[in-house]
Nucleic acid binder design. Structure first.
Lengths: 119, 119
DNA sequence: GTATGCAGTACCCTTTTGTATACTAGCTGC
DNA sequence: GCAGCTAGTATACAAAAGGGTACTGCATAC
């Protein structure tokens, strides 16, 4: 790797600079990222609260994906220097602009859950 | 794996049976799946043509993700028993119903590419 | 003194993805 | 006959992403 000045970021697709869908997928690439954004849409949330709302996610992964979303400018992280620690995650404007994508996923899923329930 | 009658499908989320977004993500979970669906939206496509349109994907992965999409009823696979082999992939009705999701991704990405070009 | 909550980090292991190559089957060219 | 073509499949192996759990430091609660 690092053969040239600008290498493909981790998880990015070849041609993601110009293909709109690839560009979006590069940002959403991560098992929990869309769900994190979905949970943050209504209101900001603290780390452990987010963890509780996303059953199945581990601390390690949640931390990693939040950091990645922060790097991409989707999520804002506000640390209050108190004890016990208080860290609040919220969507940036860029993050909120992903709402239509999550909305479309929600709508499709609702239809599936309605028409083809599993349990 | 396969310890019980019905295990969580590969890539599925806990609670995906009822959470709409998880349900959608379970189907779209796979680095290339949304792009495959995106490419198949306008018209059916053969394997190697699909591979050419998705620079960066390997045969192995493309095969695997197509099989998975087929299992989920998103993609139809039509084999013509001729030599050389001719296999055509197309979206099922269920697959086409994902268009709004891909459309939202495309729209968001277009805005990003326009406002924050990389190269 | 022990238990709990917060917001993580460190360690190790499994699954998924990426890369490369060899193989199928019949056809064309030499 | 042998090489190369199409449109894949199968296999092996390495790298990246995901997952489980223990642990930290400080504070309050019992």
């Amino acid at each position: 790797m690092s053969d040239d000045s600008k290498d493909t970021p981790s998880g990015a697709f070849i041609g993601y600079e110009t293909c709109p869908v690839r560009r979006t997928l590069t940002v959403l690439n991560g098992k929990w990222k869309p769900l994190i954004i979905y949970e943050l849409l209504p209101a900001p949330c603290r780390f452990n609260e987010l963890k509780r709302r996303l059953p199945g996610v581990s601390q390690r992964l949640l931390t990693a994906q939040l950091r990645s979303l922060e790097e991409d400018g989707i999520v804002d992280r506000k640390v209050m220097e108190v004890v016990p620690p208080h860290v609040e995650y919220s969507l940036s404007e860029k993050g909120r602009s992903l709402q239509p994508v999550l909305q479309a996923m929600e709508t499709w899923g609702e239809n599936e859950v309605k028409n083809f329930p599993i349990s």
